[in-house]
Amino acid sequence: MSVVIRTTEVSDDPRLRDLLDAGELERVQRRPNPVPFITAHALLRRLVADETGVDPRRLEFEKRCATCGTDRHGKPHVTGMRDLHVSVSYGEHMAVAVVTRMGEVGVDVEDLESADFDGFGSVTLDESEAVHLEGLTGDALLAARARMWSRKEAILKATGHGLVVDPSQVVVSSPDAPAALLEWKAAEHPPGPTQVSDIDVGREDHRAAVAVLTSHPMSIRVQRG
């Protein structure tokens, strides 16, 4: 099976809410702006349904935290489908979901504006990565930041660590080079062979990436909608 990625614009279509289960709807109630969450989780359900033939409303998801072992948070898994790996990411404008059988997977999408803050380098970059941004300004700088940030987030989602691991300890390739995990400096156990790829989500103001814990080359299919 290839890595299947689906992207969509955030939508307030009321029919999307009907796809969510009781647990997801409870989380919806706690959000001041639930539309991105609803869009993303409906997108994931529809993607898994299309790849497995199961009604999206009948799918059940569980969470497992790689750090503490709890099921109250962590990366999502489809109940009863242990060989199927999924991930989802969203922001104010875009949502991205992925499904694969190749190995644990992570996906991340970033608006360029999310990388527009003082101290970005000290928070997210290793010294060896900071040199790649020297001389960049304006949108070129934000695009490079967002690209590197999305790669790091995708990797940390795939490992299940999330931001428990300092992103500056996850060294990725230059933003103008093919996506890759170059070095894992964190104290947590390294993930082993990891494939990383940038994703074109169809918007110039976003960058996205996917990571799979596998030694095999990824065959990626990107779908819109």
Rank of each mutant, 00 (worst) to 15 (best):
residue 2 S to P: 15
residue 5 I to K: 01
residue 6 R to Q: 08
residue 10 V to Q: 12
residue 16 L to K: 00
residue 18 D to G: 10
residue 20 L to Q: 10
residue 21 D to H: 12
residue 21 D to G: 14
residue 23 G to C: 06
residue 25 L to M: 11
residue 28 V to L: 03
residue 29 Q to I: 05
residue 29 Q to E: 15
residue 32 P to Q: 07
residue 38 I to N: 05
residue 43 L to Q: 11
residue 43 L to K: 13
residue 44 L to E: 03
residue 44 L to Y: 01
residue 46 R to T: 14
residue 47 L to W: 02
residue 48 V to T: 11
residue 48 V to M: 08
residue 60 E to N: 13
residue 60 E to D: 15
residue 64 R to A: 12
residue 64 R to C: 10
residue 65 C to Q: 06
residue 74 G to F: 01
residue 79 T to R: 15
residue 81 M to C: 02
residue 82 R to V: 12
residue 83 D to E: 14
residue 83 D to K: 15
residue 84 L to F: 10
residue 85 H to Q: 12
residue 86 V to F: 04
residue 96 V to K: 07
residue 99 V to Q: 01
residue 99 V to N: 04
residue 100 T to D: 10
residue 104 E to W: 01
residue 106 G to R: 06
residue 109 V to T: 05
residue 110 E to R: 10
residue 110 E to I: 07
residue 111 D to G: 09
residue 111 D to Y: 06
residue 112 L to Y: 06
residue 112 L to R: 08
residue 113 E to F: 03
residue 115 A to H: 00
residue 116 D to M: 02
residue 117 F to R: 11
residue 117 F to G: 09
residue 119 G to I: 04
residue 120 F to E: 07
residue 120 F to T: 11
residue 123 V to R: 14
residue 125 L to D: 01
residue 125 L to W: 02
residue 126 D to H: 15
residue 129 E to Y: 11
residue 129 E to G: 15
residue 130 A to D: 11
residue 131 V to I: 09
residue 131 V to F: 01
residue 132 H to M: 00
residue 134 E to N: 14
residue 136 L to N: 05
residue 137 T to G: 03
residue 138 G to R: 05
residue 140 A to T: 01
residue 140 A to F: 00
residue 142 L to I: 05
residue 145 R to T: 00
residue 147 R to Q: 09
residue 148 M to A: 10
residue 149 W to P: 02
residue 149 W to R: 04
residue 157 K to G: 03
residue 158 A to H: 02
residue 161 H to T: 05
residue 165 V to W: 04
residue 166 D to Q: 07
residue 166 D to G: 11
residue 168 S to R: 15
residue 170 V to S: 05
residue 170 V to N: 07
residue 182 L to M: 15
residue 182 L to W: 03
residue 182 L to V: 14
residue 184 W to C: 09
residue 184 W to G: 13
residue 185 K to P: 00
residue 189 H to M: 04
residue 191 P to M: 11
residue 193 P to A: 03
residue 193 P to I: 01
residue 193 P to L: 04
residue 194 T to V: 13
residue 194 T to F: 05
residue 198 D to W: 04
residue 199 I to P: 09
residue 200 D to A: 14
residue 203 R to K: 06
residue 204 E to W: 03
residue 207 R to D: 07
residue 212 V to L: 09
residue 213 L to R: 15
residue 216 H to D: 03
residue 222 V to A: 09
residue 223 Q to L: 13
